[in-house]
Write a protein that binds this DNA or RNA. Structure first.
Lengths: 108, 108
DNA sequence: ATGAATTACCTATAGAAAATAGGTATAAAG
DNA sequence: CTTTATACCTATTTTCTATAGGTAATTCAT
């Protein structure tokens, strides 16, 4: 199990918001798996990272939830709020700004 | 004073190692200023971040130091060790791997 | 000449976030 | 029927960056 890169701060949040923009609605356990998938295994998060983050994002009004029974158990579905969408755009922007700056720094 | 992006973990270390590969030898105060410069102001670190990091990198054998008097006061010059160079390559690699994975995730 | 700003170093504490290591319960698969 | 997978959760630890100081010498402006 390859460890995550030492550049993880903010990455879980950005990935979650990005996934929810693409997929409209997801539940926590699904998000955990999807993060491994969309990053091609480069990022691998455990439930202990994802669940508290989801709770925090909901508390901040970036995500809204809906508990629905599915195949016997109850799932908690998350979706972006408009505030969450704005946050996604802002974070994406900052990520790219930093990426550009780092690329120039590493090249120079 | 624009705040740093919320994606800073590992970034100060990578920037310091990268600067020292380009410049051969630098002292702490110089590094603080150079980080602002090479990132075009995107990243701005205070001495309180840089100095403890330099001490840690030296303790880990990634940097070697040389105290030399310059214009009256004593400066502490830092340079990469071979271990530091390897670390720089590894971190650069991991940064780009993550960058690529994030770009694909944000696009998909 | 003197006071303020800059250079140059340092550390201790706080704060934020991911990583770890658990725990509960149901459903499916062997 | 026992194990594995699904699906949720939280408390604690670890690892950083961020903040907010402090010391001392030099340079710059008045």
């Amino acid at each position: 199990m390859a460890a995550n890169p030492p550049f993880m701060s903010g990455v879980p949040e950005l990935l979650i918001l990005s996934l929810l923009r693409a997929r409209e609605e997801m539940y926590g356990y699904e998000i955990v798996a999807a993060i491994g998938a969309v990053t091609g295994g480069v990022v691998s998060l455990k439930e202990g990272v994802v669940y508290p983050l989801l709770h925090g994002l909901e508390a901040d009004g970036l995500l809204k939830t809906q508990r629905r029974p599915a195949s016997g158990r109850t799932r908690v579905y998350y979706a972006l709020t408009s505030k969450g969408i704005r946050r996604l755009f802002d974070l994406t922007d900052e990520w790219r700004r930093l990426g550009g700056a780092m690329e120039r720094a590493l090249a120079g």
